[in-house]
Design a protein around this nucleic acid. Structure first.
Length: 564
DNA sequence: GCCGTTTTCGGCCCGACTGTTTTCAGTCG
């Protein structure tokens, strides 16, 4: 079994090799195919077995044949042939910071340098002095670049839930600068990608200098890598790179659009602009010399005849055509989340904790909270809240918040039934299918409806049996960051199978915990509307057409409705 | 190599920054 990432890696290597060989457009074609494959919600094997490889953006006749060969044989003759033309060390040279295909090729072809070690020797021996294009400063850069190879590896992509608090801290620090007006985070964090490679921060300000000064002096900053009149790049102690740009207010929307990406979304957007005789860059939309949009993103998309595209959808998966046709989904939003389905009290719970939970719900305008009052494993009770708390949870609403008792059932669901709920006087079950190694069969299902499948997590292929369980139970699956929840690719698969989603609201989590915001980003990234999120319908829904409480696919009701 | 409500051929996003230049090439995002 060859993973999607391995295939993407192979295509990227082909791109690099073609770059070194001086090819013009092929490298970008291979990179684009690699990016789409990396972002696929299901395995290439599955797609190939349906004969659908050509439906992947950027995959045409030639690349689909190569992918097929890799899947079938685990290797690729074309790649081996390219490798034969370029010494392996030259690829490593190209991966040094500041060294691209042209420079690497010159080292190799003109100076006989075919690897970082040889480059290091050449620099030490002074063989670069007098060579055109390699003056003192450049040689200094190369020396440190070669040195860094042995040092800790360059920063890899970071899980979004880790990057989120860092971004928040930076935004708050910049907002405190007196000359600053607007601050926004763009990039893959804004698109709610599961991992982020760097942070992009945009600022409008009266004066640039104080902004850069504050930025460079942040406690988390390890080094300032580059500073120009409008842009500064730093590296944080954790290795994450942060780019800060100061833009004028008239261009804020255009810059936000541009730096939010994705790259493929922007390329398509600018191609569309060209077709309409317009030009889009980070300063605005231009007809000739005249700027016709730029202050807001709505203006920018509007000038191109498009509806504003939510950042989470900007991946060139057809969203631009949808925006042109007015067919973009109305994605679920934070105020839609009126119910928390899965809140925990600590094992040593006191009434104070319950007050805290209620306060937390009020803060977030959540009106009903499903509280776990007990946990069972294989029919045995493993944990339960103190009886006096159970009474309060079952009692009348606390300060307007309705508390709904729920039971978590770990692992195997056989033996879990109505009696389990009755024992706890709970209203619904939360399945926690740890170690579910196979697809469940209907006999495995409890006679009591399960409302939520939570704490499952894992990669797409691991998720399938869990999704099958959710489908059979007509339960929602919990989405969110971390190893114990499902990400946006699984959320998308769930939606496509008609399975409802559940989004943690953050009720009962510490202040500043990013998991609720990230979870919302994930389900939006999966294209979910309010109607597809179980805890977004029902209670307190604003006036207007009410979504069906029981969705078209027969999902359960929200806790708050059971006694109304 | 991919792709097309202008195309099955002829295009392929665009600008900041750096170091090296006498006006630009390369890298990066």
């Amino acid at each position: 079994m060859v993973s999607n990432s391995e295939v993407a890696g192979t295509l990227s290597e082909i791109a690099d090799l073609l770059d070194l060989l001086g090819e013009k457009f092929k490298p970008e074609a291979y990179r684009r195919a690699a990016r789409s494959i990396e972002a696929l919600p299901e395995s290439l094997e599955t797609i190939a077995s349906r004969g659908d490889l050509r439906s992947i953006p950027g995959v045409g006749e030639a690349i689909s044949e190569k992918v097929t060969e890799i899947l079938r044989t685990g290797s690729l003759a074309y790649l081996e042939r390219l490798r034969g033309q370029v010494p392996p060390g030259v690829l490593e040279l190209m991966r040094l910071p500041g060294v691209g295909p042209k420079t690497a090729r010159r080292f190799w072809a003109e100076l006989g340098i075919s690897g970082p070690a040889q480059l290091s020797e050449a620099i030490a021996a002074g063989r670069l002095s007098g060579v055109k294009g390699f003056a003192e400063k450049r040689v200094g850069q190369l020396r440190s670049a070669v040195g860094e190879v042995a040092a800790p590896s360059p920063s890899e992509r970071m899980p979004i839930e880790r990057a989120w608090p860092l971004a928040r801290a930076i935004v708050e620090a910049l907002r405190a600068v007196p000359t600053v007006h607007e601050v926004a985070v763009a990039g893959s964090l804004r698109r709610a990608r599961e991992t982020v490679g760097d942070l992009d921060v945009l600022v409008t300000a009266d004066r640039t200098q104080p902004v850069f000064d504050t930025f460079s002096r942040l406690a988390e900053v390890r080094e300032v890598r580059l500073r120009g009149p409008t842009k500064e790049t730093v590296v944080l102690t954790c290795g994450l790179q942060v780019d800060l740009r100061v833009v004028e207010p008239e261009a804020f929307g255009a810059a936000l659009q541009y730096f939010t990406g994705s790259k493929d979304h922007n390329v398509r957007l600018r191609s569309l602009a060209r077709e309409r005789g317009l030009k889009v860059n980070e300063y605005g939309v231009y007809r000739g010399e005249e700027r016709i949009a730029g202050r807001t993103e709505q203006e920018v998309y509007g000038a191109l005849g498009l509806a504003w595209v939510p950042p989470e959808l900007r991946e060139d998966r057809g969203e631009i055509a949808d925006a042109a046709a007015g067919k973009l989904p109305r994605l679920v939003e934070a105020p839609d989340l009126v119910t928390e389905l899965h809140a925990h009290l600590s094992p040593a719970t006191t009434p104070v904790d319950l007050e805290g939970l209620v306060a937390s719900a009020r803060e977030r305008s959540v009106e009903a909270v499903g509280v776990v009052v007990g946990r069972v494993r294989g029919g045995e009770t493993v944990w339960t809240v103190p009886p006096e708390l159970l009474d309060r949870i079952r009692g009348p609403p606390l300060r307007g918040i309705r508390l709904v008792p729920a039971v978590e059932a770990e692992g195997d669901l056989t033996g879990v039934g109505r009696s389990t709920l009755a024992a706890f006087e709970a209203e619904y079950l939360i399945a926690v299918p740890a170690g579910l190694g196979r697809a469940p069969s209907p006999q495995d299902l409890p006679p009591t409806p399960v409302k939520l499948v939570a704490h499952a997590g894992g990669a797409v292929d691991v998720a399938r049996p869990v999704l099958e369980l959710a489908r059979l139970c007509r339960a929602a699956v919990e989405i969110g960051p971390g190893a114990e929840r499902f990400d946006s690719t699984v959320a998308r698969l769930a939606r496509e199978s008609g399975i409802a989603l559940a989004v943690p609201t953050g009720v009962g989590t510490p202040p500043g915990d990013p998991s609720s915001a990230v979870a919302l980003g994930f389900v939006r990234r999966a294209g979910a509307t309010r109607e597809e999120v179980l805890n977004a319908s029902g209670l307190g829904t604003p006036a207007g057409p009410q979504p069906p409480l029981t969705g078209p696919r027969g999902r359960g009701r929200t806790p708050g409705h059971r006694k109304r």
